[in-house]
């Protein structure tokens, strides 16, 4: 024991409990799922070959990727605008904005989904209001289609898009922009040629973060899509809980996992990951 202590830093002894817990109860079943994807129902790459055979699977993956891309574009663009406004206003106003942003982080996803259900339904508040003021004659279908899923997802993802952008904008040296203006560039030029490129790391981090989080999103698509918009996460849950087909689900999970890890790797090249997560948790 004494010899052991000499070689191992005592800090490891208090790291161990959590490390062991996560390794045994989290990592091992995930590895098991990866293993299942090439062994269930029979060994080989049969599950992956289905991607080439089944149109349904390809359509589900395409729907997921498309919705994630659109969600990401909207969330990051709107998030950029919010972050920009927050950095360029008085401290007091910024604090109010930050409070609203964090508050929205904290509101339960179920409460939000429920609210959208009330607002966007056929007899929902939005349709009712539009009909009352005579803008539309027939209710618009906001739900049970991709539009509803997109509204719900963008609404959920905007705060996640803002935080990495905020970190990177606050770290900027304002004098660079002053220098650009002094050298005769217009405000627009300064923004496109100086400001935007300098905030690129934050932009990349924010884009990837939102995309990763959107990929596995379950609650909003399942409710607001109303069964009409089938995304990978919901398909996995149907495979496991209803048809009990582990193989296909495991294959999709493996694809998703590798996608996420690849994006994390790209992200780590642009930004220290801990700052992104640190920001996201606060």
């Amino acid at each position: 024991m004494q010899a052991l202590r000499k070689h191992i830093h005592p800090g490891w002894f208090i790291i161990a409990p959590l490390l062991i817990l996560v390794a045994t109860l989290y990592l091992s079943p995930i590895l098991n799922i990866l293993w299942l994807s090439v062994t269930d129902p029979e060994p080989g790459f049969g599950n992956y070959a289905k991607l080439g055979e089944s149109d349904a699977l390809v359509r589900i993956i395409w729907t997921t990727v498309r919705i994630c891309i659109i969600t990401t574009i909207f969330s990051v663009t709107l998030g950029y605008s919010i972050a920009y406004a927050m950095v360029h206003c008085h401290q007091k106003q910024k604090n109010y904005m930050l409070t609203l942003l964090l508050l929205s982080f904290w509101i339960s996803i179920l409460v939000r989904t429920f609210s959208w259900l009330m607002l966007l339904g056929r007899n929902g508040l939005v349709n009712g209001a539009l009909q009352d003021i005579g803008l539309i004659a027939e209710p618009i279908a906001f739900m049970r289609n991709e539009l509803g899923v997109l509204i719900g997802m963008v609404h959920y993802m905007i705060p996640y898009a803002v935080l990495p952008l905020l970190v990177s904008m606050e770290a900027l040296d304002k004098r660079v922009m002053d220098a650009s203006r002094n050298l005769g560039a217009t405000g627009t030029q300064t923004f496109w040629r100086i400001y935007l490129p300098l905030t690129l790391p934050g932009l990349v981090a924010s884009t990837l973060l939102v995309f990763i989080l959107s990929l596995g999103f379950y609650v909003t698509p399942a409710v607001l899509g109303g069964g009409k918009v089938l995304m990978v996460a919901e398909y996995i849950s149907v495979q496991l809980l209803v048809t009990l087909k582990w193989g296909t689900a495991a294959m999709l999970a493996a694809l998703m996992l590798f996608g996420v890890l690849a994006m994390l790797w790209i992200m780590s090249r642009f930004m220290k990951l801990s700052t992104v997560f640190g920001g996201a948790a606060r």
Binding site: G11, L25, I33, L240
Partner: peptide, 27 residues
Amino acid sequence: YSELVRAFLLLPLIIPQIISAMAFYRL
């Protein structure tokens, strides 16, 4: 090594919830 362990321990936050759900269900 400790930084590696830290990155590993943050995984449950970033791995899609549906995969975490599968993993727990499986085990």
